[in-house]
C-alpha cells in the first residue's frame, strides 16, 4: 500500500477533502462496504406484491434471482405504506423461503401413528371420491314439507381470509354447485 492510498484510506482525510464533511456517508465507508452491492441490484426480476399478513395491505417488491426469492422489500410507491413494512412484513422472505415449509403431500391413514408419502394426483382423486361419497350419504333433496333443500351437510370448509378473491370465488362456486353449505372463514371468527 502506497503512502497516498494509505492517507486516502483515512476517513478524516476523506471527510476534509471530499463531499461528506460530516463524515456520515462516503467518507466513513470502508473498502469492504464500498465493494458490496445490494441483493436487490442484481435481481433478474421484480414482482409487485402485497404483504400476506394483516389487512393494512402494505406494498411489497419481491426480488428474484436464479428462480429464487432473493429479497422482499417495502414498495416506496405505495400510498398506503410508503415503503414501510413491520416486523412481519419484513420477515416475508423468511416466510416464503422457510426450511420448515412442507412441500410434499402428507397422508395419515385412519388409526395410524405417522405420516406417509402420497402422490399429489392420487390425493386429489381420493379427495374427490370422498367428497362424492359424503355427499351421496348425506344428500337432502327436500324438507319434511317437500320444499327444496338441494344440499349436503356432510362436509365443511374453513378458510379464505388469507386467500385471493379469485380463489374464494372458485371455492364458493364449486361448493355451492355441489350443494355444500357449510363454508366458513375467519370473518366468522
Amino acid at each position: 500500500m502506497g503512502l497516498r492510498t494509505f492517507i486516502e484510506g483515512w476517513p478524516v482525510y476523506r471527510q476534509l477533502t471530499g463531499t461528506d464533511p460530516l463524515g456520515r456517508g462516503a467518507a466513513a465507508q470502508s473498502a469492504r462496504s464500498a465493494g458490496l452491492t445490494a441483493r436487490t441490484e442484481d435481481a433478474d426480476s421484480v414482482a409487485r406484491s402485497v404483504c400476506p399478513y394483516c389487512a393494512v395491505g402494505c406494498g411489497q417488491r419481491v426480488f428474484v434471482r436464479d428462480g429464487q426469492v432473493s429479497q422482499i422489500e417495502g414498495d416506496p410507491d405505495s400510498p398506503i405504506s410508503r415503503g414501510r413494512l413491520c416486523p412481519k412484513g419484513s420477515a416475508s422472505k423468511s416466510l416464503v423461503t422457510s426450511p420448515l415449509r412442507q412441500t410434499k403431500v402428507r397422508y395419515r391413514r385412519p388409526y395410524s401413528t405417522q405420516w406417509e408419502d402420497l402422490d399429489l394426483d392420487t390425493a386429489l382423486d381420493m379427495i374427490a371420491d370422498r367428497m362424492l361419497a359424503a355427499r351421496e350419504q348425506t344428500w337432502e333433496d327436500v324438507d319434511t314439507q317437500g320444499r327444496p333443500l338441494n344440499r349436503t351437510l356432510g362436509f365443511s370448509s374453513l378458510g379464505g381470509a388469507t386467500l385471493d378473491n379469485e380463489e374464494n370465488y372458485l371455492i364458493k362456486k364449486l361448493f355451492t354447485a355441489m350443494g355444500a353449505l357449510q363454508i366458513e372463514n375467519q370473518a366468522r371468527i
Binding site: 399478513y53 393494512v56 370448509s157 379464505g160 381470509a161 378473491n165 364458493k172 353449505l181 363454508i183 372463514n185
Partner: peptide, 20 residues
C-alpha cells in the same frame, strides 16, 4: 382494521355459509 390480508375480500366474495 381487519386482521388478515384478504378477510375483507373473503366477506365480499364470501366463503361464508349464509351469503353469496
Amino acid at each position: 382494521l381487519r386482521g388478515h390480508a384478504s378477510i375483507q375480500g373473503s366477506t365480499d366474495i364470501p366463503t361464508l355459509f349464509n351469503l353469496l
